[in-house]
């Protein structure tokens, strides 16, 4: 996708991107999600939209507000289908448009647009024309962006990574698409090791004691991720393909760069860069970062041994 103007790929008329959170609610249902960076309350849902959220996020839906501060609220508002451009998604790699200013974050994506004021108490708006199964994709892609931004403000960082639990501790394996995250996660599953996610993992408590909190967002594994909860973080590894298995340390500069490159969404806006760089530096201080080279036929047991040797 190449478009010079924010929203022009997704919106029929980018000029109509909303600049205030106003519109017609879909309904009067709301759901509270206890996610890292949250809690998040999604309001003005139709019954159908609320049902979809119940089905997909049962493990993180809360009845009462889990903490007294930091609640982020989003109203789901209705727009007509013609608000969004129609295009063939066959073979299309998912992406979205972000427009970050000092006052707010604008989002334009497949079947939704969102306006998120940076003021914590202000309600965000999510405009969509769907309430069927498509809404599941809409709300998940919105939540991924929100978790990334909110985590950064709350002593955390979201990493595009595979997460596995070894010896009771979490290890994250980072890399660009195609680096082998899902393959590694699948090897871990096959070996009986708990897997947090093959796509996105939330690192929390960065400055105190970094830990990985599982998110209900997975890539190719979908609902096969087996572990729930929060686990202490013991190491982060940049994935590299090679002919044998090996772990080597990275300089702190290389480690910081690797973390920055795999912090989705927030590394695309100038507004967040200072905080993001500081968080990445903090993470490299709190957990060792190395490079894991492995081959296609490397087993998870071999990876585990290499990781243990690296830890020693």
């Amino acid at each position: 996708m190449t478009s010079s103007r924010f929203g022009s790929f997704f919106l029929t008329d980018p000029e109509r991107f909303p600049e205030t959170v106003e519109g017609e609610p879909w309904g009067d249902n709301s759901r509270l999600l206890d996610l890292p960076g949250g809690p998040f309350r999604i309001t003005d849902l139709s019954a159908s939209q609320a049902h979809l959220m119940d089905r997909e996020y049962s493990s993180v839906i809360a009845e009462t507000q889990p903490s007294s501060d930091g609640l982020h609220e989003t109203a789901v508002l209705r727009v007509q289908p013609g608000f969004f451009r129609e295009f063939d998604i066959e073979g299309w790699e998912y992406t979205l448009d972000l427009d970050s200013t000092p006052d707010r974050l604008g989002l334009a994506a497949l079947e939704f647009a969102a306006l998120v004021p940076w003021t914590s108490e202000a309600t965000a708006g999510l405009w969509t024309s769907v309430e069927d199964a498509w809404f599941q994709g809409v709300i998940e892609n919105y939540l991924r962006v929100m978790v990334a931004h909110r985590l950064l403000l709350r002593d955390g960082i979201l990493l595009h990574s595979a997460g596995a639990v070894i010896d009771g501790s979490a290890f994250l394996f980072i890399g660009a698409s195609g680096a082998g995250k899902s393959t590694l996660a699948r090897k871990a599953l096959d070996a009986g090791a708990p897997v947090l996610s093959d796509d996105l993992n939330a690192v929390v408590n960065l400055t105190v004691k970094p830990a990985v909190a599982q998110l209900p967002f997975t890539g190719e594994l979908r609902d096969q991720a087996t572990f729930g909860g929060t686990v202490p973080l013991r190491g982060v590894f940049v994935l590299k393909q090679g002919s044998s298995v090996d772990c080597e340390p990275l300089s702190r500069g290389e480690a910081t760069a690797a973390i920055l490159a795999t912090s989705p969404f927030v590394n695309r806006g100038v507004e967040n860069l200072d905080t993001l760089v500081a968080s990445a530096v903090t993470l490299t201080s709190g957990a060792p970062v190395g490079r894991l080279t492995s081959a296609k036929d490397t087993t998870f047991e071999e990876i585990t041994r290499a990781v243990r040797r690296f830890q020693e």
């Binding site: 300089s251 702190r252 500069g253 920055l260 590394n267 806006g269 100038v270 760089v277």
Partner: peptide
């Protein structure tokens, strides 16, 4: 944005979307 860490500079180029 850049940060010097242990004598190396980590540079984020938002316009290019990469880290050096």
């Amino acid at each position: 944005r850049y940060r010097v860490i242990d004598d190396e500079a980590v540079v984020v180029r938002q316009g290019e979307g990469d880290v050096l």
